[in-house]
Structure formats: structure tokens, C-alpha cells
Simulated scan of single mutants.
Amino acid sequence: MSTATPAPADRLLYRPEEAAEVLSIGRSTLYELMTAGLLESVKLGRCRRIRRSALEQYVNGLTPESH
């Protein structure tokens, strides 16, 4: 069980773990979405980050039939 505090909604960039928590999905599922090109991410040095706008775009594109 994680004791981390929820990621603030006013952030512009999220670590993959934080983005997964925001979307209520697992970390591996988040990486699968990034690999499939369904969730855009940016690379900063060796770190991968997900923009808040990319999370919103992904959620807005979901349909009742989405997996």
C-alpha cells in the first residue's frame, strides 16, 4: 500500500508513477499507453514526464468502448 500523497492537480508535469495514480491505472498500463502512442510523454534528460494536458487529452478521447 502506497503512503505517497496524491499528485497535485495544478502540476504541469507528472512522473509516470504520479500520472498512473491520477488516471487510477497501474504503472505498467501507463507505460503500455505511452509505448502504443496513446499517451504522449516528454523526455527530460534521462527522465520521462507526462504533461497534464496529455493526461487530459487522453481522458477526453476515451469512449465507453475504450479498453
Rank of each mutant, 00 (worst) to 15 (best):
T63H: 11
R52M: 03
L39Q: 05
A19L: 08
A19R: 05
L39W: 07
S28T: 14
K43T: 13
G61V: 06
L30W: 06
Q57M: 00
G37E: 11
C47E: 13
A36P: 01
S53A: 15
Y31S: 05
R46G: 12
T35E: 12
K43M: 09
R49L: 13
S53H: 10
I50L: 14
S24N: 15
L33T: 02
E21I: 03
L30E: 01
L38P: 00
A20G: 10
N60P: 02
R49Q: 03
K43G: 07
E32S: 03
R49C: 10
M34C: 15
R48F: 00
A20V: 09
T63G: 08
A54D: 10
R49I: 06
M34D: 11
E32K: 06
S53L: 13
K43N: 09
G37V: 08
R27D: 06
L39G: 08
L55K: 01
G45L: 10
G45F: 04
N60D: 12
G37Q: 09
R52Q: 12
L62W: 07
I50K: 03
A20Q: 07
E40N: 07
V59T: 14
L23M: 14
E56Q: 11
G37C: 09
S53N: 08
C47P: 00
L44V: 15
L30D: 01
N60W: 04
C47H: 05
G37D: 04
R46A: 09
R52C: 09
E32Y: 02
E56L: 12
I25V: 15
S53W: 04
G45Y: 09
K43H: 07
L55T: 01
G45R: 03
I50M: 04
A54W: 03
V42H: 10
L44E: 14
